[in-house]
Design a protein around this nucleic acid. Sequence first.
RNA 1: GGGCGUGUGGCUGAGCAGCAAAGGCAACAGACUGUAAAUCUGUCGGGGUUUCCCCUUCGUAGGUGCAAGUCCUACCGCGCCCA
Length: 298
Amino acid sequence: METDSKLIVILGPTASGKTGLSLKLAKKFHGEIISADSRQIYKGMDIGSGKVTKKEMGKIPHYLLDVASPRQRFTVAQYQKIALKAVRHIHQKGGLPILVGGTGFYIQSIADGVVIPEVKPDWKLRQKLAKIPLPELVKQLQMLDPARAGIIDQNNPRRVVRALELALKLGSPVPALQQRDMGFKNLILGIKKSPKELKILIAKRLKIRLKNDAMIKEVKNLRKILSWKRLEEFGLEYRYVAQYLQNKITKEEMIKIIKKESEHYAKRQMTWFKRDQRIHWIKTQKQAENLLKNFLKK
RNA sequence: GGGCGUGUGGCUGAGCAGCAAAGGCAACAGACUGUAAAUCUGUCGGGGUUUCCCCUUCGUAGGUGCAAGUCCUACCGCGCCCA
């Protein structure tokens, strides 16, 4: 079985069962799991992010969990570096790396080797820019990098600011999107679930997370080292549990909103995934296994 | 029985006599070059030859206006107060 140049990707919307499937496939195919989840990255964010437990992991090595403090902002570029290292490491060991997660951008950074411009976020600069009205920023960008200005979403302050940041630091237009050959072949599996199924799964999962106030306690713990604002930045469970703990919403409202927002999130994920024609959409574990077998034979 | 108030698109909720009718929610679609569970956009009564035209809408029925969701009358439903 030739695995030293291959990568399995398991993706899908939130609550679709990625973790479970990845564990089973890892066991069966001597795989090692690399998380591609922008929240599981952080220490202390376990229940709300749906992180695998030690017990579930068993002997299967996992990477890219708990690699950052939630006090610091983690980014795709950092993710790309560490995750790539993990892939290489597994390859060297003769194992099969399985990239698992729902963060499309993170997956893309590994599976497609997107080249991210080497300009670190300058938070001071961003703070400064945040005070300037958006139309002003857009005008500046149009002068510095007209091509970029035409491409990006001019209504999205976050995008405009980053584009400006690049233009200012680079002193030249942002190069067109580049992809680097990562040197390995991908098999991308997507877990297919209908919106109705997801809705049920999301509700079920939330109930479990809320059991014995486990998730509430988790957020309370995080609050010891994080501001409410930071906590709310994380979105979904973290955002709305934080709002609940601040008495901004009732518990019933919190539950309702988390469900609804998770459904929205699942939809956004699917919008991202839909455009990738390489994804093999599967319904069962058996389908995944068959695809994997074939892939590994080649 | 009397007084006051209210009835708007799937929901919520604005609405000055010139409106297919603000905003919010939901729904549907989409973007994504170091915050990506974040951030942002479009559509959203129906139809068409779709930067414009037509039709049908604001509890029901009449009425007054060139023109009515907006004014008047009656009726029906809902709410509060007095009996």
